[in-house]
């Protein structure tokens, strides 16, 4: 029963973070929200008896993807003609 309540809470959190990722004006906040979706998903994988997928999602989906997004945002900010 406690697992069911946790999964429902995590799913609601994922949906909220998805709306933040789509509608927030600041791009950096949106990227971090998409990373939080991946982190919540890795907890769900752990409940669904898939520890391999949980490790992969936590290390690739929520760390390396966010890092690549930030490198590209940094390059775009660096090449901005208005500054």
């Amino acid at each position: 029963m406690i697992q069911t309540i946790l999964i429902i809470l995590i799913s609601v959190g994922m949906l909220l973070m998805a709306f933040v990722a789509i509608y927030h004006k600041n791009l950096q906040v949106a990227v971090i929200a998409s990373g939080i979706i991946s982190l919540f998903a890795s907890v769900v994988y752990l409940f669904l008896a898939a520890p391999d997928v949980a490790i992969t999602e936590a290390s690739i989906g929520s760390v390396l993807t966010v890092a690549i997004f930030f490198y590209v945002l940094n390059k775009i900010r660096h090449e901005d003609p208005e500054k």
Partner: peptide, 10 residues
């Protein structure tokens, strides 16, 4: 475009 790529990752 960045928002589109974020939606793709979702």
């Amino acid at each position: 475009i960045i928002k589109m790529i974020i939606s793709f990752s979702i």
